[in-house]
Structure formats: C-alpha cells, structure tokens
Design a protein around this nucleic acid. Structure first.
Length: 933
RNA sequence: GGGUGCUUAGCUCAGCUGGUAGAGCAUCGCCCUUACAAGGCGAGGGUCGCAGGUUCAAACCCUGCAGCACCCACCA
C-alpha cells in the first residue's frame, strides 16, 4: 500500500468497477416482500447541480442501502430526476433572452425541443456528481418524470380522477405570477413582511349624507371595488347598510353591505371590497353576489375595465397615479406607515396578483371515504402505517393536512405534462388519454377538438413517483416486490409539496402507503448557522470539499453572476476570512463520514469544516492502521491453514469490543441515529483498535518469547478484526474500505474464488457472531489501568516517554498476581517499564498510582522524580478526591435518599464512599512520606 | 394570531427509559517511540439560557419567562 492516503487515487476507480459489474442492481427475486429493501430517491431537478443538502441525504440513503444490501436484502435504490417545470423552463428562457428572443418567437414545439436539448446537455451533471459521492443507485432503472412511462401514468391518473370528479376545472381567484404568466399553488407563494403604507380613503355616500373612510394597502385596487363592507352588528354603520357610495375616480355606485368578516375594531370598521383581486374579498363577493371587476392584464397592467387614463399602466405605476388623483380630488384622508405580508412567487420573486382565471383543481377532501384523498393520507399516519422520524414532524403534517385547500394543478407553461383534456368549439371539455381515445370515449366522431394549452404542476407527476418508477400502470413484478418502500429520506421543506401528495396518490391508486417511514433530515447550514445561499455567498459545493479548491477560484465562483453585484465585495471578504487557504481536498469518504456524524435529529445542521478535517484525519488513521496490519501479516502465517492458534486476552478483548460496537450500530441504524453509528465506529476504530489493540499486538509479534501459536493468534485477530471492521464501515466510507479490503480479505480467507470480488456484496458482520468475553475485558481493563496509571505520572512529571522506569507493586492480591503473570510483558512494553517487582517490605520514596482493586504502583523517585512536583500532583489528587467524597457522603447522610432510592443506587454510593476513603487515606500517607524527604 | 424547534466547554455538537456532565476542533505541557506529526502520551476548561415546581435525586419531567430560528394563517 502507498505510504500516504490519497483518496483521489482510489475513489473513481472503484466506482467505475462497481457500476460496470452491475453491483448496484437488486440481488434478485429475493424471498418476497420481507426480503426486499427499497428507497426511492427524491428526484433532483434534471438540470440541477448537487448541493450540500443532496450530499447529506444521499450519504444517508446510500448508507442504508449498502447496509441492507450487505445484510442480504433484495435491495433497490431507485434513482431518477424531475423535469421541474417552472425552474427548467426559466433556465431555457433566460438563455433565449440572452439571444434577445422569447419562447413565443420559437413557438411551443420548438421551445419544448430546445428544453429537451438542454436536458440532454446538462442532465448528466447531477448524476455524474452522484457518482462522485459513491451513490449505489441502480442506474439501469434511472427514471425521469417525463419518460414515456410517466406520460402514461400521468394521463391515466388524470383521467381517473376527472371521471371520479376529483379533478375539475373552474374559474376562480388564483395566485397569478405576472412575470411568469402562470398560476401558482398556495405552496409556491412565499409571504414575507415588508414595509408598506396604509392609505385611508374617503368614499362619499351617493345621497350626499356623508361618507365612510376605508383603509387599503393597495389603493390601485379601488378601481375595482364593488362594495364596502361593515360588520352587521356595528352600531355606527347600521343605518348605512343598503345605502350606496360613489366610488371616487370612477364615479361607479357601490353598495354598503354587512358581513361577519369585518373586524369592527380594526381601522374605521369599513372595508373596501375588490372581489377580483383579493382572496377575502372574493369570498365576500361570492356571498353577496357582487360584480367581479378584473382590472389587470396577465402581466399586471391595468386593463380596459378601469378608467381610460390608467389603461396600460403597470400596477405599481397605477398605484402612484391613483393616489395622486385621490389626493387631488380630496378623497385621500391620510397615509400611515404599515408593515404587511407581501406574497411573492417562489421562482420569479414577483409580487403575486390574485387573478380570476380558468384553472384545473384537484379536490383534496371528499365525503366519500373512497375519494377522500386528504383524509386517507391523514389516517395513514394516524394509524402508524407511516411513521415520521423524528416523530414530531407528524404534527406539522397534520397541521397542514387538516387545513387542505384544493390544489391548483394547471400551469400556463410549456414545459411539463400537457393536460389531457380537449375542447370542442362549444367549449365542452373531454378528458382522456390521447385525442383518439377521447373521441372514442365520448363518441365524438369527426368534430374539431383542441387540446388544453396548460401543463400540470411538476409536483403532480412527482406525486406518482413511488409507483410510476416501478412500472405502473403496468402490473409489474417490481411493484409487487418493492412497494411499499421502506423509508423515504428527505427534508422538511417538501413535506407538503411532495411527501403528502405521494401518500395521497399512492393510497388512491395502489391502495398501499408509498413508504413505511419518513426520515426527515435537518437542513445543512454554514458553520455559523446561516442558510447557504448564492446571495449570501456562503454556499459550499460538496465537490469542492472532496477535490479541494484554490481560494481565488472559490472567490470567483462565489461572486460570479451575482444578481446584486454590490454584494460581491462583502462575499469576497468573508470568503477570504473563512477559507484563507482555500479548501483542501478531503475525499468523498471523509465527507460522507462527516455528514453521517452530523446527522443528529435536529432541525438545523451546521456544517463545520473542522469536523471534516477531523474525519479526513480519521480516514488517514484507518489507512495507516491497515498498513500496520498488512506489514505484520502479509506473507506471514495468519492461521488460515494452520489451525493451531493461541488467543491472548487482548485478542479476545478486541473481538468482544467489536461485537459490542456492531450491536450498537445495529441498534442505532434501526432508529436512524447515524450520528451515533458514526461515533461507535470512530470510538472503536481509534480508541480501541488503534490506540490499544495495535499497540498490544506489538509485544506479541516482536518478542522472541512468543510462541508461533501466539503469533498466529494475534495475526489472525489483527487481520480478521480489520476485515470485519471494514465491512462495518463500508456503508459510510465505501471507497477506502473497498481499497483496503481487497488487500486484507485474502489474508482473512474471505475473498471468494467465485462470486463478486467486492466488499459491497459481502455480509455485514453481526453482533451475534462475536462472543462477549467478560474475562478478557476484565483482564484488559486491569492492564490498561496499570498502563494509564504509569503514563499519568509520566505525563505530569514530564518524564520522557522513552525512558524506561522500574515499578514496585504493593498490596498485590491473588487476582492481581494471576493477571500480572500473564500480562507483565504487555504492561512492561506499553508502559515502557524497565522492570516490575512485587514489593517486599517498605517502599522507597516514590510516586504512586492507585489501581481500582487497591494495588499500588510505585515509581521510585530516585533521580527521576522531582519532590515538589510530586507533592503538587498529590495535593491536586487529594483535593479532587475530597470534593467527590464530600458529595457522596452528603447524599448518604440524607435519610430520605437511603430510604427512597433503589437499593442498588444506595449500595453503589456506599461502595464509592468506601473506595474513595481508601484512596484518600493512601494519598495522605503518600504525601506525608514524600514531604518528609 | 396559531404551531414547531433550539439554548450544554472558546467553536460545532452528543448526552437513549431522571442516578457522580461527554466527543471533535481549539488551548497548554512532553514526545518526529520503525502504522500514522493528517500522529502519540498527558493536562486544563462547563452553577447544562433564567426563575420556580415535582422527586431521595433534574441537563433530562412540569410551569412560567427570556433570546434565537422556522412553519402555517385572509385582518383591510
């Protein structure tokens, strides 16, 4: 093996091999549903790029997939991408814009072709990046939400839901994006507080008997007012109800109506009603059968329904003009500063306009249980068929599901699934899978038909992901084998957009849940807890963490193509501060292990570069530990053929520890505590295996006194522990484990002559394969305490670690003696002892380490230990023990504690006190002895 | 307005069903000991946001408060 760990040198090579060999495919038919394990990837935007959130979620998914594949499940990780309607169309339109063209210049067909071209060109980026991450998805099944199969699935679903009355078309007020010229669903509208104004307007009564004052945040909409509302029980206005007002600027006559919606406490208690441009007003308008005057064109310019002078004005220009005119006519009473929630489109950032249009909707709630999409989806979680992890997310889910509005599914775009509906010249609508089918179904003969121009919301097809990817509407073996899938791993940001809708659709069309568990990951933020965003300039590209990036390149990358160039300077400064030397390469395995370790069940996860460096060092540690093992076992007898082996306590101890570690991992994987899985692996590998076991193996292998059987036993244990450990680590660090395993496995007799020569397809070790060895644990614990005791004195006395010292033992019990007989060489080696002698008579002046069992280890001071330093050390030790002892004694002196606490707890406390008292006594004796020198 | 989450060492975070506070990084000593200086050995560092309560015992359970973050919602 190379002397240094170079992730670049190994990673891509192994991925190519795995993919070529078809190792990512499900292992076969399996033994049925119980033997299968399936995860559906949340499909990224086909033209997108990998970000930290993907890296995080993919790491966890791949870990689960590899873990279960190694445990013998018929395992499928279903990959694919989403056509991402608006997002993708916008990208291509922006490109056209650069050429000075619009999509209308090309026409629908050519434009769509252009988008497909763009998909061909850029669609490989994200899948290529997934390969860099080591994702073991079955690429042979890669799906795309506009595949022919999806076209069919979408059409079938649409037709069925339409025929059942669950999809309908209607003219309603929708969220209209005046920049993108399309309707949006409620979810695609982001409302944020902004500074605005509240204009107070005076509307005179038609009969000249006075006026009312109304307030508005959008004065231009007054041109479309068709009423003023007051509360029915508001005494101030009771006698005005039914009278009419003369609307300023237009002169139109509008009624004063009474409606419960009005809050008499707010403002003047009078509300202007613009049914065509406000959701509340729209409802009131329907209740009172008011006229709905649409004021705007699709790009939110004033239309011909307003007075002529405003025609063609943008709505914000119109606002200015209206306010000026109102002021001129004396209708403007006052203007207050006012904070308000402004709704904007999540893609265009344009202020959304409530707008009256014809759209398609999906009915979310229904009295008929068979048609109650929302209700059934709620029940699936309530019943426990679907479990959120962490469980709290079910509350969020319920909160939204219990307030479901019908879903506006049509979009006035070109890129997407065109709605399978046709109109005749009378405006009748016919729905079905294709024009021919429609003609037949409705027996239309040869009349002229025109297909609906709209496409479906991207999330409509995404909602079919669980069954459309597995072959639906065909009745496939895959559906039978893999649905319901086991777990969905995704972020909370798409619980409503995607998760809820998959649950509804899969229940409706397959009558099963799409997945049994939903593991909701936290959101990856930067090291200070800030959301990563282009405009903040704090985005970290996971590929840069893997490959490294020069500072200058990083600065350029972060400041290029800014929407607000003035931010560039600040971003550059912050970037130079955060990464003074750029980012060093860390490799995929280090990144994956870091993300695994960060996967605590919290809502936000701050990405800390320090952790990444730490785990890169961990990879290096593994690499070097492997080098040590190989150096001592390659071309040597590791006991594969010669069965005569003797296992030391250390050999048995490390196997026992490995078993415990695996048990911990088995437990934590089940509950998705990947952070604890990573901890268990890290602690065992570094703390037990490297720090102790490798060191413990040295005296055995290096000593001429060890027998061949002993050496064989240790070599065998070295190789087999490492080999099993690699299999345990593989799901989280696939590349380094494969690279090392290839060399180690043959020594452990594990590389099969036939079958897959990859760690990927080896069985994952089971805790039940490792016997717990209490004797070995006790014995090693004793040896370690001994060694640590000597080291502590050494450390505090600043004794050179390389200088051998003699020790004298006092208070040696029978047990101590037995263990010592076996472990003396080990202890001598690791504690760098010149000699170990059992004391006969009084000890010389010495520094002492106390063993838990009462044995004392004396380090004679003669010439090597400083008296004052030792006194200082003892004082510190005494003080610490006194403090602890006091606490325990206080507890025991409390009668209630002794009376009420469980017996074992009291007993434990008593034992602690007596131990500490003994220790304290010894320390004091020791101090006197030293002080007297 | 309704809901959710967070607050533990200088930093980033663990702490599972209440029983003497942990890790990594950073800091301070001593070491280039033939796997590893991306390392080894040792050390220091926390009245667990604040105030109450329950309990023999609270970082953990309950109540209130403060700060931070997020989600949902139609107040003109």
């Amino acid at each position: 093996m190379d002397k240094t760990y170079e992730p670049h040198a190994i990673e891509q090579r192994w991925y190519d091999t795995w993919e070529k060999q078809g190792y990512f495919k499900p292992s076969g038919p399996g033994e049925g549903k119980e033997e299968s394990y399936c995860i559906l990837i949340p499909p990224p935007n086909v033209t997108g790029t990998l970000h930290m959130g993907h890296a995080f979620q993919h790491t966890l998914q791949d870990a689960l997939i590899r873990y279960h594949r190694m445990r013998g499940f018929n395992t499928l990780w279903q990959p694919g991408t989403d056509h991402a309607g608006i997002a993708t169309q916008m990208v291509v339109e922006r490109q056209l814009d650069a050429e000075g063209k619009t999509r209308h210049d090309l026409g629908r067909e050519d434009f769509i072709n252009k988008v497909w071209e763009w998909r061909e060109y850029s669609g490989g980026t994200i899948t290529q990046q997934m390969r860099r991450l080591g994702d073991s998805t079955d690429w042979s099944r890669e799906a795309f939400t506009m595949d022919p199969g999806f076209l069919q699935a979408v059409a079938e679903v649409f037709e069925t839901l339409f025929d059942e009355g669950l999809i309908y078309r209607g003219k309603r007020l929708v969220n209209w994006d005046p920049v993108l010229h399309t309707a949006l669903s409620d979810l695609e509208v982001i409302s944020e507080e902004e500074n605005g104004k509240l204009w107070h307007l005076r509307y005179p009564l038609t009969d000249g008997s006075g006026h009312v004052i109304v307030a508005t945040t959008r004065p231009e909409t007054m041109l479309g007012d068709t009423a003023v509302a007051v509360h029915p029980e508001d005494a101030r206005y009771a006698k005005l109800i039914g009278k009419t007002l003369k609307l300023p600027l237009t002169g139109r006559e509008v009624p004063i109506i009474a409606d419960d919606y009005v809050d008499p406490e707010f403002g003047s208690g009078c509300v202007k009603i613009t049914p065509a441009h406000d959701f509340n007003d729209y409802e009131i308008g329907k209740r009172h059968d008011l006229e709905m005057i649409n004021l705007f064109t699709p790009d939110a310019k004033v239309n011909e329904n307003a007075p002529k002078k405003y025609h063609g004005m943008d709505r914000f220009d119109a606002r200015k003009a209206v306010v000026e005119d109102l002021e001129a006519t004396g209708a403007l009473v006052k203007i207050d500063e006012h904070k308000l929630m402004v709704p904007r489109g999540d893609r265009s950032n344009a202020v959304v306009e409530p707008y009256l249009t014809d759209q398609w909707y999906m009915k979310m709630r229904h009295d008929d249980p068979a048609k109650d999409l929302g209700g059934n989806a709620i029940k699936a979680v309530e019943s426990g068929d679907i479990k959120f992890v962490p469980g709290n997310w079910s509350k969020t889910y319920y909160q939204w599901m219990n307030n479901l509005q019908d879903w506006c599914i049509s979009r006035q775009l070109w890129w997407g699934h065109r709605i399978p509906a046709w109109y005749d010249n009378e405006g009748n609508v016919y729905v079905g899978q294709g024009e021919d089918h429609v003609r037949e179904k409705y027996d239309l003969g040869k009349i002229e038909l025109r297909q609906d121009n709209d496409v479906l919301d991207t999330w409509f097809s995404a909602a079919l992901w669980p069954f459309a990817t597995l072959g639906w509407p065909e009745d496939t073996k895959d559906l039978e084998t893999f649905l319901p899938t086991n777990v969905l791993i995704t972020g909370f940001d798409i619980i409503f957009f995607w998760v809820a809708r998959m649950i509804m659709m899969t229940l409706k069309f397959k009558d099963v849940v799409p997945f049994h568990e939903i593991y909701i990951t936290g959101l990856i933020r930067d090291e200070h807890g800030q959301k990563m965003s282009k405009s903040k300039g704090n985005v970290i590209d996971p590929i840069d963490l893997i490959d490294g990036i020069e500072l200058e390149t990083l600065v350029k990358k972060r400041t290029a193509g800014m929407m607000q160039p003035q931010l560039a300077q600040k971003i550059e400064k912050n970037t130079r501060k955060s990464f003074p030397e750029g980012i060093k390469p860390h490799g995929t395995d280090a990144l994956r292990f870091t993300l695994t370790a960060l996967a605590s069940p919290s809502r936000d996860i701050n990405f800390d570069l320090g952790r990444l460096e730490g785990y890169r060092n961990f990879c290096n540690k593994i690499w070097n530990a492997a080098r040590y093992v190989l150096m001592n076992t390659e071309d040597q007898d590791c006991g594969i053929e010669n069965k005569e082996m003797e296992f030391s306590a250390a050999d048995r101890w490390i196997q026992s520890r490995l078993g415990k570690t695996i048990a911990e991992i088995e437990k934590q994987v089940k509950v998705y505590r990947f952070d604890l899985v990573a901890n268990a692996i890290h602690d065992f590998t570094w703390g037990d295996f490297c720090d102790w076991y490798l060191e413990l193996s040295k005296p055995v292998l290096q000593s001429e006194e060890s027998t061949d059987a002993q050496k064989r036993g240790t070599r065998h244990t070295l190789v087999n522990t490492l080999e099993a450990l690699l299999r345990v680590m593989h799901p989280y660090m696939p590349f380094i484990t494969e690279e090392i395993w290839q060399r180690v496995a043959p020594l452990a007799g594990k590389l099969p002559s036939a079958g897959a020569k990859t760690i990927m397809l080896q069985p994952h070790p089971k805790s039940s394969d490792y016997a717990q060895d209490a004797t070995a644990e006790t014995e090693m614990h004793w040896a370690m305490e001994f060694i640590l005791g000597v080291r502590r004195i050494r450390g505090e006395m600043n004794l050179s670690p390389s200088k051998p010292v003699p020790v004298l033992l006092e208070g040696v019990s029978k047990d101590d003696k037995e263990i010592l007989a076996r472990q003396a060489p080990l202890v001598k080696f690791l504690a760098r002892l010149e000699s170990i002698e059992v004391l006969d008579g009084n000890p010389p002046p010495s520094a002492v380490a106390l063993m838990p069992g009462g044995m004392k280890i004396h380090l004679p001071m003669a010439g090597i230990i400083d008296k004052d330093a030792e006194l200082k050390r003892l004082d510190k030790e005494i003080e610490k023990t006194e403090k602890n002892l006091e606490g325990c004694k206080r507890k025991l002196s409390n009668d209630n504690f002794v009376k009420n606490a469980p017996g074992e707890v009291v007993e434990q406390e008593r034992k602690r006190v007596s131990e500490m008292e003994g220790t304290l006594k010894e320390l004091r004796v020791q101090r006197e002895r030293i002080a007297a020198l």
